[in-house]
C-alpha cells in the first residue's frame, strides 16, 4: 500500500451524505482502514449521524441535514481520520462457514479449477486455507463481499448471469469470494454451497457476518451438508 492510498477526498453524495474516498482500488489494507474508521465512529458518535456504509475503498456517512451541514460532517470525519492509525487492530470475529464443494452444490468448480490450472482439491484447499476479510455487505441482504485467497484470483464472471442462484451458494470472481444469502440472480462462479443462513430476519443475529469480520470456509461432505440443513 502506498502512503497516499489513505489520503481522503470528501465529496457530497446528495444533500444528506458525505462520501469519503480513498485510493480507488480493491485492497485489503485500505478496506481494513475503513473498518477502523467505522469503529472509531462507533466510539465517537455525533448527533445527526444516521448511518455509515463502508465499501471497498470508500465510506459513505449519512447525516440529518436538519441538524448538521456538510462542512460540519467533513470536519468531524477529518477529526476521526486524524485519530485513526493505519495499523489499528480490528475487533473482528472470524466466522466459520461450512461449505460442501463441487457437484450440484458447486457446478462451476471444474471450470474454476481448469481456469486456474489447479486440481479441484487444490482449489478447495486454497479457499479453506485462509481467513477472508469481509470488505462490505451488499447486493442482497447480508451478502459478504470478501477478499478471496490470492491463489484463486482472476476468475472471470459468467458471460450470462444465472437468473436464479440458490441461497447459500458460494462463489468466486476477480479477487472476491462471497455467499449468496437469498436466492437471486448472479454472475459469480459457484464452487460450493453452505447450509448456513447468512441472512435470517427472524434470528436474534439476523446477519451471520458483519463488515470487517473474517470468513473461514471449511469443507464438509454432502452428508454433513444434509445433516446441518435438516437442523
Amino acid at each position: 500500500m502506498d502512503k497516499t492510498d489513505l489520503t481522503p477526498t470528501y465529496l457530497p453524495s446528495g444533500d444528506r451524505a458525505v462520501l469519503v474516498q480513498f485510493a480507488p482500488k480493491i485492497d485489503a489494507a485500505i478496506n481494513r482502514y475503513i473498518h477502523s474508521l467505522c469503529s472509531k465512529i462507533d466510539d465517537n458518535p455525533f448527533k445527526g449521524l444516521i448511518e455509515y456504509q463502508p465499501s471497498y475503498s470508500c465510506l459513505i456517512v449519512h447525516y440529518d441535514p436538519m441538524l448538521l451541514t456538510y462542512n460540519e460532517v467533513t470536519a468531524y470525519l477529518e477529526k476521526i481520520i486524524s485519530i485513526t492509525g493505519s495499523d489499528e487492530e480490528l475487533s473482528s470475529s472470524v466466522v466459520e462457514i461450512p461449505v460442501c464443494y463441487g457437484g450440484d452444490h458447486g457446478p462451476d468448480l471444474p471450470f474454476v479449477a481448469a481456469h486456474l490450472g489447479r486440481s479441484e482439491e487444490d482449489v478447495v484447499a486454497c479457499h479453506t486455507g485462509e481467513n477472508c476479510l469481509v470488505c462490505f455487505l451488499g447486493f442482497t441482504p447480508g451478502f459478504p463481499l470478501s477478499q478471496a485467497p490470492e491463489k484463486l484470483a482472476g476468475v472471470p464472471r459468467l458471460e450470462t448471469p444465472r437468473t436464479k442462484v440458490p441461497a447459500g451458494s458460494v462463489g468466486v470472481v476477480g479477487n472476491q469470494t462471497g455467499v449468496y444469502p437469498i436466492s437471486s440472480p448472479g454472475g459469480w462462479r459457484l464452487i460450493g454451497r453452505t447450509p448456513l443462513k447468512l441472512y435470517d430476519p427472524g434470528r436474534d443475529e439476523p446477519f451471520l457476518v458483519k463488515p470487517g469480520d473474517y470468513i473461514r470456509f471449511k469443507a464438509i461432505s454432502a452428508e454433513e451438508y444434509a445433516a446441518i440443513s435438516a437442523g
Binding site: 453524495s13 451524505a17 480507488p24 482500488k25 480493491i26 465499501s55 471497498y56 475503498s57 459513505i60 451488499g138
Partner: peptide, 11 residues
C-alpha cells in the same frame, strides 16, 4: 464502471 460503493436515494 467504478469500484462498487454505496448509493444514496436520488442518485
Amino acid at each position: 464502471d467504478i469500484i462498487t460503493e454505496g448509493q444514496t436515494p436520488g442518485a
